[in-house]
Amino acid sequence: MENTVYTKIYAPPPFNRKEILRYAGITGNAPELSALIDECIAEAEREFTYKVCFARFKVERNNEMLDLGFTKTKSVHLGKNLSGCESVLLFAATIGLGIDRLISRYSKISPTKALILQAVGAERIESLCEVFACDVQKGCAEAGYAAKPRFSPGYGDFSLEVQKDIFAVLDCPRKIGLSLNESLLMSPTKSVTAIIGIKS
């Protein structure tokens, strides 16, 4: 049913080491960092929870105004992304507060580990989004639809302000323990909100 918010908890997606290296600023070969990265992954692993909440909305167009049910926007970039889409799937994903605490702790005793944990966290939330997007794609394909690449607030001219509407409609604090602060940052920090366009 449209507008109902669902919650899904995922099993840990496989680690993408290449991405971790990239987020840590390691663009080439650095085998001597391998053990340290393993250590960080091992320590962080038990802190993660992989939660997503989502809901589906109809897309209505009124000249250049895009009405997504939970918000109205004139974003050209989003409009392009959603061209031909009749509905969207709005989601919020988080890997939980544990990694924030761990990063905070290590920034007091080892900035190197804090940096790598930061990279591990970034990779985790991206991987979670990937797994979720894959699910959506599969579900769409089965029903004869196609899913667009995900599009987040802050991309192009799609204002971060929309976060307020997203949080109101998805009830993120209650559903997945994700909250929005006054400067539109999310806590836990390793979290993503995005829109996936769906077209037939």
Binding site: L97, D100, P173, R174, L180, N181, S187, P188
Partner: peptide, 14 residues
């Protein structure tokens, strides 16, 4: 009384 929806410091800004 439900939660405010805001995260308290230090992991939020409230």
């Amino acid at each position: 009384i439900g939660p405010t929806g805001r995260m308290l410091k230090p992991y939020g800004d409230f």
